[in-house]
């Protein structure tokens, strides 16, 4: 009597193992897709650093400024899209343990790109760009943040000189904590426009535009 059930159990175990094998393949495929996008971010970051080092040592400040003026169509502009992708993949992932690393690496690269931009502004007195810091949260679901992300993406296409950097306010990384404290972010979504104006809550495109026109 036990035999058909034993066979069924064996079949189930075998198929479950096979299933998990495919899952692990699939999960690492997605993780490596994210990693290669992160690599592009790091590559950009690295070349900016190198350019800066060059200008400080054997080059000139003018060269640095012209580099920053031309090479600023940065990957960071797609920052929130990548953040969203990381979040979605992490949620549907089962076996891949790399996600925390991927997430943190992404925050760090993004933060570094933001600081490079600030540096360029400081050295080169470039003021043609509007920079928006967009704070969202990762520990709980935040549908308003997702909506805000979409609005910012649309806005970026409309204004080529707009840069958006997205940061989670609850990731508990030293640099992010400092940034959160600096701008007094207590709730999300929050937008910091050109390091001055802070907008809390979901904002429509025209509300954001009104805020950066004030500057």
């Amino acid at each position: 009597m036990a035999s058909p059930y034993l066979k069924a159990a064996l079949l189930t175990v075998a198929l479950t193992f096979l299933g998990f094998f495919f899952i692990s393949q699939f999960d690492s495929m997605r993780a490596s897709e994210l990693r290669s996008q992160l690599d592009e971010l790091s590559y950009q970051l690295e070349s900016e650093r190198l350019m800066f080092l060059y200008s400080q040592t054997i080059g000139s400040q003018a060269e640095l400024c012209s580099y920053f003026a031309t090479a600023t169509e940065s990957k960071a502009n797609k920052a929130y899209l990548l953040a969203e992708k990381i979040r979605q993949y992490e949620q549907s992932n089962i076996l891949n343990a790399e996600y925390e690393k991927i997430r943190n690496q992404y925050y760090l690269s993004n933060a570094a790109l933001y600081l490079n931009l600030r540096l360029a502004e400081k050295y080169c007195a470039q003021n043609s760009h509007t920079t928006i810091l967009f704070f969202y949260k990762i520990k709980q679901s935040c549908p308003e943040c997702a909506a805000q992300g979409k609005i910012l993406d649309a806005l970026r296409e409309k204004h080529p000189n707009l840069r958006v950097f997205a940061f989670p306010h609850d990731a508990d990384l030293p640099f992010l904590n400092a940034l959160v404290r600096r701008h007094g972010i207590t709730q999300v979504p929050a937008l910091v426009i050109d390091d001055k104006t802070v907008l809390f809550g979901l904002q429509a495109d025209w509300q954001i535009e009104a805020a950066f026109d004030k500057d």
């Binding site: 979605q88 549907s92 076996l95 909506a147 609005i151 649309a154 979901l202």
Partner: peptide, 25 residues
């Protein structure tokens, strides 16, 4: 509920995106 015009604007841009992400399970 948070901001009606913004909600509509967000829904109007690629509204289906991310709705159905293939789950490994």
């Amino acid at each position: 509920a948070a901001n009606l015009p913004a909600g509509i604007a967000a829904a109007a841009t690629n509204w289906g995106e991310g709705l159905l992400v293939f789950q490994s399970s």
